[in-house]
Simulated assay, not measured.
Amino acid sequence: MTDDYAAMSSGAIMVILVLGFVEMHALAKSTQKIVHEAVKAGVDTDGDTLETRMADARYRSLQRAGSTWSLLCLLMTAALILTFLWAAIDGHGPARLLAGYTLIVTITSLCFVLATAFAKVRGEFLPAAFGVAFPRNGSISAPTAEGSTE
């Protein structure tokens, strides 16, 4: 690891942390809005209705994404701390393992943030198997008997 690589990787990790926190916050807020609308509309949250399964799937997707993001935050924070410790040592060596670890954590975290953003843009964060349409305003519409949404 060189001083330049340590500076670039630390900066990249900080940018990924900020982008990831913004993305996860937006995802949590949209899920909360949809579930709140479902409860406000009188959807039976205890039954096995289409809306209940949809809200549950959305919540589980958010929970998986949150768990993955928490793990990646822990790994990125460890990479930052180790990089700072390495940089603080006078006459530090090459630290090839630290450079490799930082590279793997940075690439993995960036891929996760980009995949989450692309999935949100394409509307695939919720499984399409439920047949529930999500208009741009985030309101719920269930399919009718003819197969279209109301």
Score class of each variant (00 low, 15 high):
residue 50 L to C: 03
residue 150 E to L: 14
residue 82 L to H: 13
residue 97 L to C: 02
residue 78 A to M: 11
residue 98 L to M: 03
residue 136 R to H: 15
residue 48 D to V: 01
residue 61 S to Y: 10
residue 110 L to D: 08
residue 21 F to A: 14
residue 36 H to P: 02
residue 56 D to N: 15
residue 93 G to S: 03
residue 150 E to R: 12
residue 50 L to G: 04
residue 58 R to G: 06
residue 1 M to Q: 03
residue 50 L to A: 10
residue 122 R to K: 06
residue 32 Q to N: 09
residue 56 D to P: 00
residue 34 I to M: 03
residue 148 S to F: 09
residue 111 C to R: 05
residue 41 A to C: 01
residue 90 D to M: 03
residue 56 D to F: 06
residue 50 L to R: 08
residue 44 D to C: 07
residue 52 T to V: 13
residue 1 M to S: 07
residue 100 G to K: 08
residue 133 A to P: 03
residue 150 E to C: 08
residue 67 S to P: 00
residue 79 A to C: 15
residue 104 I to M: 11
residue 51 E to M: 06
residue 103 L to H: 10
residue 37 E to A: 05
residue 66 G to P: 02
residue 116 T to N: 10
residue 31 T to I: 01
residue 139 S to T: 14
residue 54 M to T: 07
residue 116 T to H: 04
residue 112 F to Q: 01
residue 143 P to R: 11
residue 87 A to E: 14
residue 76 M to Q: 14
residue 22 V to T: 08
residue 94 P to W: 09
residue 148 S to K: 03
residue 51 E to W: 06
residue 33 K to V: 08
residue 27 L to F: 11
residue 77 T to L: 15
residue 76 M to K: 11
residue 84 F to P: 01
residue 5 Y to E: 15
residue 101 Y to M: 03
residue 122 R to C: 02
residue 46 D to F: 05
residue 4 D to V: 12
residue 61 S to R: 07
residue 103 L to N: 01
residue 144 T to W: 05
residue 65 A to T: 05
residue 11 G to R: 08
residue 25 H to L: 15
residue 84 F to C: 15
residue 139 S to L: 12
residue 60 R to Q: 15
residue 33 K to C: 00
residue 75 L to Q: 10
residue 61 S to I: 03
residue 115 A to L: 07
residue 25 H to R: 13
